[in-house]
Structure formats: C-alpha cells, structure tokens
Amino acid sequence: MTNEEIEAFLVIVESGNISNAARKLFVSQSTLSQRLKRLEDSLGVELIYRNKGQKNIELTSKGTELIPLAQRWVSIYKDIHVIKENRTRLPITIAAIALVNEFTFVPLYNEVIQEYYGLDLTINTHHSDEIYQLVANHLADIGFVYSQLQLPEVITTPIYSEKMYLITNKTSTYYDGISVKDLDSEKEIYLKWGIDYEIWHEKRWGRNKPLLKVNTGASLIKYLNEPERWSIGPISLIESSKSKNNLVYYSLEEEPPLRICYQLVSRYSKPSKVKAIQIFQKAVQIFITTNELVSNNI
C-alpha cells in the first residue's frame, strides 16, 4: 500500500468515476485502475463495485469505511514529507552590531540565503556587550562585534579589519593626508570605536571635549551636516552613507588603528548547532577573501 494508491482512491471517490480522476492525476485510466487494484489487493477487500456499463463508481461498505482513514493517511504523509524536505534546513541565529548587519554583511546574508540552502537565518542587532551575553547563554549561535572582551564561555576570534578615515561634509576644507593637528576637537562628532582607538585618540587630542558624543554609526552620520564638523570611522560606515549624506572621506597622516571585527561562538556550542555554525563560518571566510572593503590581514 502506497501513498500513490491511497491518493488514487480518494481522487476516484471525489471525481465520481475513473475517467475524470485519471484526468485530474494526469495518468491513463488503465494506470489509475491498476493503482486501485493494487490497493484492494493489499487490503484484501473490494473498494468499489465493478458493474459493466456503469459510468459512475459505487463504493462498497469497505470503500466507505476507508475514506476517513485514507484522508488521515494523506494528511500524515504530507506532514512527514515536510519534515523530510526540511531535514537539512538548519536554524542559526546571528547577533551583530548594527553596522555589520545593516551594511557590511548584507551581501553575505543575501548570498547565504540564495546559495547555502541548508541554513535558516535569523539576524538580530544588538550592542557588543549584549552580544557576548547572548552567545554565552546560547541565545545566539554566532556573534560579530567590534570590541574584545574576556568571557570564559565565549571564543573570540578576529576575522577581518577595516581602515579608519576622516569623515566630513563635502563643504569642509579638509584634504587627503591631513594631520590630526589641523583638526579642531570642538568640531568632532565622537564615537568610541574600542580600546585601541581610545588610546590612539587620547594621545592626539588628550581629554579635549568633542562637540558631540554618540554611540552608533548611524547617529554619527546625522551630525556631519555642517561644514568643518568631522569624525573618524571605518570604511564600511563611509561606503554605506556617503552617497546620501553629502559626505567625503580622507586619509589621516597619523593613521588610526585598524577597526577589527571579532567573531564570537560559544565554547560549548550545542551539538545540534555545530553543523550550521560551521557552514556559516565557511561562508564568512569566503566573503572576507572576496570583499574589497574588508581585509583578512589583522
């Protein structure tokens, strides 16, 4: 007894005769009759009366009894088929900072959902300290942050770096190769890009107060709308914003430290998540080696 035979029986019942049922199933009448006969043989009973010259079928008592059972069979078969089709779809949750999710990794995510069919992606945006906790508590399978913390439950690996540039409005008078000595800290829109950057920044401007402190790249961009205001940020932020915000960027004579992105995974990843994590990590490696904005030289 097969699903094909059960389906044939139900379509015959629904259609009222063999010829209509055969057209619905795109098979010949003889093929459909054979399926029905095999079903009857496997059950050891007749399901329809076969009267010569009778166009419409007439069910036997066993045929009538079989209808609800056959309907349940088909429903269960469909559920099992869904499980079978989705057996390789591995759920994976990514937690990353806004800049990674909203720009840098957008081409990667698109590539994964188009090419790596086995992954079922969920992408969430958080602050770095939250991402560490999410990974440590198995609420995210992989995290991507710009800061390095020491948590015993989390493996932190640098995966790519970006150059940092001066960002300013097109109407400003700054230029390529400008010295930090020529930048007025009172015109700065400041974002803390990490410990290395803070150390570098303090050596150049001391504890001078900037015009404004922000905590996201999106906020930083919004306040560079006036001449001579400036900030420092990674190339991914610049490329995601310059065309629609009248921004330009310049190299600095005293180069800021590279902006490093760290990948976070749990030291004790759930066995059910290991394969999905490995697939995504491989996709990340390929992406980094082919993306012009980031570098695997760390």
Rank of each mutant, 00 (worst) to 15 (best):
E228P: 07
E153I: 03
G143Y: 01
N56L: 06
T216R: 12
N246P: 08
E115P: 04
H81C: 08
S272W: 04
R259T: 09
Y250L: 04
V112M: 06
M164N: 13
N208Q: 15
P152M: 02
T88Y: 13
L191A: 06
S75W: 07
S272L: 08
T173Q: 14
T64G: 09
I260S: 10
S179C: 06
L32K: 04
N51Y: 13
S147E: 13
S240C: 02
I235E: 07
S251P: 01
E102H: 10
I92M: 01
S185P: 06
R72M: 08
L69G: 08
I97D: 07
R259V: 02
E186K: 15
V145S: 01
T289G: 08
F103Y: 15
E40W: 07
V274S: 11
I113Y: 14
T168F: 03
S272V: 12
A98S: 15
A98Q: 11
E65R: 06
T88R: 13
Y249T: 08
I286Y: 07
L99Y: 04
K62H: 10
T104A: 14
A95K: 05
N297V: 12
T156Y: 00
V284K: 00
N86H: 13
E188I: 04
G177H: 05
G233A: 15
A70C: 01
L121C: 09
N137Q: 13
N291C: 10
E40H: 02
T60K: 06
G233I: 00
A70V: 02
L10C: 04
Q114I: 01
A276D: 08
H201M: 08
P234F: 02
S231F: 00
I48R: 00
C261V: 11
I260W: 11
A140S: 14
N215H: 13
F103S: 12
S33W: 00
A136F: 04
K187G: 05
I6P: 10
G206C: 11
I6S: 05
C261H: 01
S161H: 06
G217K: 09
E254G: 10
T31H: 14
E186G: 14
K163V: 03
L39P: 07
R207L: 13
L166D: 03
S295L: 05
T122K: 14
G143A: 10
A283H: 03
I131C: 02
R50E: 00
Q133F: 08
